[in-house]
Design a protein around this nucleic acid. Structure first.
Lengths: 338, 338
DNA sequence: CTGAAAGCGCTTACAG
DNA sequence: CTGAAAGCGCTTACAG
């Protein structure tokens, strides 16, 4: 009954008599023995946990990512060491360092977390996967929402319904989702007709910024026929201002958002928007990091895109017929790198 | 430059020449050396991380708890090992066991996690704190929302506004929040007047169950003057059914919820409800477990209650004057045990 | 099939 | 002020 033998039965390594095995199991049971994870990690070099770094651990958006990650991790018997990295790069560095020896791999979403940053601060023998982050270089795999495709699909939809002057209320300039959505809008304006013109107003994803943007739009000589907000909260602020000014939606102006937050279908009129499958993003990223943990270091990296969905409701003047379709998958593709 | 000396400068233990210290620091910097957490944990017996077990890691409710826990943990430089324990007690046992050697303390919210359960499955030298769970015995500290006080305050409010027949749509029977809210309702009915009568309908916290309960209420000979739902989603389902039946709220029947979810103030009429400060619960519980980690094992345990807040909006027929007050703190108390 | 021994990477008395 | 050594609790070749 040496520690070696106990270790063997606990880890199911065979080469143990049935008799000794049952004897050990009985004692284990009686003493409620549970192996110490830290010791096990030290000797095996494995922790069975994945570190997850997000800008925040809460809110609609991150909560959904966590949900996807959690479900995928649970399927694989992996633990999650979560950390919210609010803002500063210095904080991100500390968080990453603190993970050494605690995790087998890292899942990270952060404006600072490009490959160079990771190479600098994270042990290069530990795999890392980026989520929804600007990818530079191909030393790490990454999973991104198709924000760009979603924005393009929305502009196409608005143009199809007949709107020409389509304004865009942007999000924060240092936010990856926001800049991708803006880029998609610009691309689509250029692509879907010479009669479409870019018109971008500043915003910051807040309800407040949507409210202000709408007020400004209302003072214009030539009002846009449609307003596409970089996210739903901004669109809601917009709607508020429009209501106050007795401007009918979608009668006088069409309104669209991005995210499909729960509120979107409760407001009046229900908001046409783009659904972003955060949980799916999280789940796929977890699967990606799990694969990387198991794979040899030289495995090629890839960048994968998670499709977004156009959700057509009443706020853009689409015909009931079109709305009946309700949801159309609009995007999604894979690209392999390195 | 032995490992011992390096260890001393890294941990700032003094007794090192300025010269050797700077030399070591320089090398540490150049090699980007970061101590291995698993090894450190093994030798110090400390992990600087708190394990957190919640029924789920996502959704409005848990997301807010996580937010509070995260903020408090960050203030103290503690890491969080999060685990969602969906349902089964067996799963909870596994999750708890897997934490051994990984955490200095445990924060847990689960219907199964009473003191007896913890004593059975969690090392007794590791402190644990319960959140919003039925407390039996006093071997563990616990932090609970004052669901009972919140429900009582709501009934009192409804009675004050003039309602006599106040129905309650209950939540799941095995849910601690739900049973406490029901208990508060019953207590208050008994307390605030002989002319008040208990009338409880089944429900399960879902919008659907509120919808059905309302339909049933509408068939009654003597309709209630007020309906108090065990949570906001149920109240919303109720509102839906009432709207369909063209029963005016609050004109024909008053409606109240519990939770104060974001939607509550967006529906029409805005919903009178009870706000539950989940983030505060999480933060206080984290502070509690942090204190327990530092304290000697014999430190007395305590049960603390986190106050809830009555939020008066338009759905219950309260006068505008009363509503102007908008929010009234209604409850909150401390009780020390053992 | 079983056990003695080394080693995982740290920290911390204990000598010097 | 500094280093050699033991020990934290496991796992895993290696002998037997």
């Amino acid at each position: 009954m040496s520690t070696a033998t106990v270790s063997r039965v606990i880890n199911g390594h065979g080469n143990v008599t049935h008799a000794t095995r049952t004897r050990i199991l009985r004692v284990v049971e009686r003493m409620r023995y549970v192996p110490d994870s830290a010791a096990r990690s030290l000797s095996t070099g494995l922790t069975n946990t994945i570190g997850v770094l997000l800008p925040d651990l809460y809110g609609e958006y991150f909560s959904e990512i966590i949900r996807g990650i959690d479900q995928a991790a649970r399927r694989r018997g992996l633990h999650l060491l979560l950390s919210g990295v609010h803002g500063s790069a210095a904080e991100a560095v500390l968080a990453i360092r603190a993970l050494k020896g605690r995790v087998d791999g890292l899942l990270i979403m952060s404006p600072y977390a490009d490959s160079a940053f990771l190479a600098d601060h994270f042990a290069d023998d530990t795999p890392a996967v980026l989520m929804n982050s600007p990818v530079r270089g191909n030393s790490h795999s990454s999973f991104c929402l198709d924000n760009r495709g979603g924005a393009r699909a929305m502009v196409r939809h608005l143009a199809q319904v007949g709107h020409r002057r389509i304004a865009f209320i942007a999000g924060p300039q240092n936010n990856f989702d926001a800049t991708e959505r803006l880029a998609g809008y610009c691309e689509a304006i250029a692509e879907f007709g010479p009669d479409l013109k870019e018109f971008v107003l500043p915003g910051d994803f807040s309800e407040e910024s949507g409210y202000r943007a709408a007020q400004r739009l209302l003072t214009l000589d030539e009002r846009p026929e449609a307003v596409f907000a970089a996210n739903d909260m901004t669109a809601l602020g917009c709607l508020h201002a429009l209501n106050e000014a007795r401007v009918a939606v979608p009668g006088d102006v069409a309104l669209a958002g991005f995210d499909d937050i729960p509120l979107a279908r409760f407001v009046s009129p229900p908001l046409t928007t783009v659904r972003v499958p955060m949980a799916e993003l999280g789940a796929r990223a977890l699967d990606g990091i799990a694969a990387a943990v198991g794979a040899p270091a030289a495995t090629p990296t890839s960048t994968q895109t998670v499709a977004t969905t156009l959700v057509i409701r009443a706020s853009c003047g689409a015909s009931a017929q079109l709305r009946a379709v309700d949801e159309l998958t609009v995007s999604g593709s894979d690209a392999a790198g390195n």
